[in-house]
Design a protein around this nucleic acid. Structure first.
Length: 139
DNA sequence: GCCAACGTTGGC
DNA sequence: GCCAACGTTGGC
């Protein structure tokens, strides 16, 4: 069971919008980066990921679950691009800010810290547990 | 709003 | 196949 992190600008697609989609979930479309796409191709049904607000939020606000494995991105005719569907699982009691993550030496190797431009990233089991604890939610 | 970092494109 | 130019992302 792998863990992931999805990044989005809250003005464009935020946690509230994700929650509004309910159980049906929504395509994580618009990704035009091979590394991010490859990460989505590796995702299995039921795997979980963090939902991160970039640019105007800079914090992890909740947990989403993969509810459809990789399929063609409906927002383009270019067959190189695929995406998964995700649905909101639960919000964090306390959002975990980038500042908090950077300040924690145990999280120094996170992709979020070292490659901030990658919009879909893997998260290790250990990082997952630590951040869930910081966010006051069950892993 | 700025700008550094990164990824992609395209001419050679 | 290289690399300069360009566009985009995201933290500040």
């Amino acid at each position: 069971m792998a863990y992931w992190l999805f990044k989005s600008e809250p003005d464009v697609w935020g946690w509230d919008a994700q929650v509004a989609k309910g159980e049906a979930g929504e395509e994580w479309d618009g990704v035009r980066n091979y590394q991010a796409r490859n990460n989505m191709r590796a995702m299995k049904l039921g795997e979980k990921g963090f939902f991160y607000h970039s640019r105007t939020g800079l914090e992890i606000v909740g947990i989403v679950e993969v509810c459809a494995e990789a399929h063609p991105d409906s927002t383009t005719d270019d067959d190189r691009w695929e995406c998964v569907d995700v649905k909101a699982v639960r919000p964090f009691t306390k959002p975990v800010t980038l500042e908090t993550i950077k300040a924690d030496p145990r999280l120094a190797d996170m992709v979020l810290v070292n490659n901030s431009r990658l919009s879909v990233q893997p998260v290790t089991d250990e990082e997952w547990k630590i951040i869930c604890t910081l966010g006051d939610t069950t892993p």
